[in-house]
């Protein structure tokens, strides 16, 4: 498979909420300098899986290993301290606050004497701008700008740069490209590559197969809480992956079925039976 070091590993992890099993026997290896793409339709259990990885939930059964050692996270903070950072769709940024203040939220640099701490705006702005620019976002050059004026992609990039700066080793990106346009998404994908180059392990959650194929080294497809396929780059085509995500049903078949129906019914799509 790969000779790169495994940072985070899941061994037969189950997660159930009461009687409902959400995750079933998940085994995954996340290596440094690699992008693991987690694919799956809505409701496949992606969110539960990343929350388990990020320390929000604890696994019901099975083991999570960090650097080969089994761990039980006491909370999101604990996972963060071990270098596992999660970046959500809008990156946890505050629109009406400056780039510098966003970047250092919760870990503000200070200067001053004794109990009279002073927020060091210059230092915060300088580091924030430098770090974001290192990630390839050169349009941000003033740390006093409000984050609300940045594009969705830039906000994502800011959040990723922030996680990297504060020592993340595993970066969990929860649908970072879902709400973005084509150009913006390309932006974020470039940042993902940059993080990978720096030796970070990236877990990239998406249901856009194209985005996954652009940056992914390793793919796992989640269906109804179980891993339906686990393969490496180049082992499957785009069509095969899409079919897998759709629950094994061949997309071409589905398309044909719908088209056939529409032809027979004056161009109307098939009626969906309402749930009871």
């Amino acid at each position: 498979m790969s000779d790169k070091k495994v940072v985070l590993e899941l061994k037969n992890v189950d997660k159930s909420f009461g009687p409902i099993d959400v995750l079933h026997e998940i085994s995954l290896k996340v290596r440094e300098g690699e992008v693991l793409c987690l694919l799956g339709d809505n409701g496949a259990g992606k969110s539960t899986l990343i929350k388990t990885l990020a320390g929000v939930h604890n696994a019901t059964r099975g083991e999570i290993l960090v650097d080969g050692e089994p761990v039980i996270f006491s909370g999101p903070r604990d996972a963060q301290d071990r270098g596992i950072a999660t970046v959500h769709q809008f990156g946890g940024t505050y629109p009406l606050m400056s780039v510098g203040r966003n970047f250092f939220m919760g870990q503000e640099p200070t200067k001053g004497f004794g109990p009279f701490k002073v927020y060091d705006r210059k230092k915060a702005n300088k580091i924030a701008v430098e770090e974001v620019q290192k990630m390839g976002i050169t349009r941000i050059d003033d740390g006093d700008r409000l984050v609300g004026g940045l594009s969705g992609g830039e906000r994502q990039s800011l959040a990723i740069a922030r996680a990297v700066y504060f020592g993340a080793r595993v970066l969990i990106l929860d649908e970072p490209t879902a709400a973005l346009g084509v150009k913006q998404a390309a932006h974020v994908l470039r940042i993902v590559n940059e993080a990978k180059k720096r030796g970070l392990a990236v877990i990239f959650i998406t249901h856009q197969v194209m985005h996954a194929m652009t940056v992914g080294d390793h793919f796992a497809v989640l269906i109804r809480g179980a891993i339906a396929a686990d393969f490496r780059k180049g082992e499957k085509t785009r069509e095969e992956i899409t079919d897998l995500m759709a629950g094994g049903q061949n997309m071409a078949d589905l398309e044909q079925e719908i088209e056939g129906y529409m032809e027979a019914h004056d161009g109307h799509p098939p009626k969906v039976e309402p749930a009871e």
Partner: peptide
């Protein structure tokens, strides 16, 4: 701005 994110950031 975003209390949830603030909590995640350790505030």
């Amino acid at each position: 701005g975003d209390a949830e994110s603030a909590r995640n950031a350790g505030v």
